[in-house]
Amino acid sequence: MDTVVAAPVCTVCGRRPVTAYRLSLRGEVTCAEHPVRAECMFCARTHDDPAPPGWRPFTAGMMRCPRCLVDAVETQREARLHLPSVRRQMTEIGLELPERVRVRIVSPQEAEAVAGPLATGVLLGLTEQLIGGEEGTRVTGISIVAGMPPTYFGRAVAHEIGHAWLALRGRAPVDDVVEEGVCELFAYAWLRRRGTPMALQLRSRLGANPDPVYGGGFRMVHQAVQRHGIATVLDRLLTTGGLR
């Protein structure tokens, strides 16, 4: 017997779109005729109500839809369920930290209090370092903002592990664009291993990011890796602080 696949219905009106529609990163559809008064910052699902039922704030002006709330990593206990696989996959990529670095869950407000507000984008994680002294650079911890779906959580952890790896390997001073680009490359590699539809969409977005530091840095590092290979690029980065 043939399997009948139901056509997707609009997340707002519950009807099948008859003309154009918007598609979330999870593959959910919303009729294009509905005005956008709320948008999930994670999957880009939209709604015509500025405060839709079941949605919750993430940061000021940023909302999360019900699907992204279901399995969001909100607590340290929930983080411990996901961290072993992220660490293992980063080790398989070749990014094993020479010492254990604690990953803790913090509120968006706590993260911003340490790092300060970003000029653009939303702060999702940060790596705290002590630089100088007899011990050189020490990584005191990685902080990840609470409330992200697992794919976003893993992407943020992979990026911050990149910062910790560079610091603990005693790398030469690195330009911010290059360092963020390298860490985005590590996140890109993790997303590839994750392999979910949302991970694939995030990889595509990462490559097209217009931000000159994160997007521009990633494209520059990615091109260098395509020309010379990851081992050569990382060796140059550790010894010279640059890509050449």
Rank of each mutant, 00 (worst) to 15 (best):
V225K: 01
A146T: 05
A72P: 01
P117V: 13
C10A: 07
D49Y: 05
A6P: 08
A115N: 11
V5W: 10
P52A: 11
T240K: 12
E28W: 05
R64S: 09
E135A: 15
P212V: 02
L123P: 12
A72M: 01
G14N: 12
H163Q: 13
C43T: 04
A208L: 02
P66E: 04
L200K: 10
V145P: 06
V70Q: 12
A146R: 06
V106Y: 10
G162T: 06
I230H: 02
S85N: 07
A224W: 03
R203M: 11
V29D: 05
A156W: 00
G215E: 01
P149W: 11
H163N: 10
V139Y: 14
A208C: 06
T140L: 14
P17I: 10
E135S: 06
R77Q: 13
G54Y: 08
D235M: 07
V139N: 08
H163R: 08
G27M: 07
A187P: 01
A44H: 12
I105R: 06
V4N: 04
G147A: 12
G242A: 15
L237D: 04
L185K: 01
P173W: 14
G125T: 09
E39A: 11
E96K: 03
G170L: 02
A158I: 05
A187R: 00
M1Y: 04
A187V: 03
V122W: 07
P66Y: 08
S85P: 02
T240N: 02
P150C: 07
R102H: 07
A146C: 10
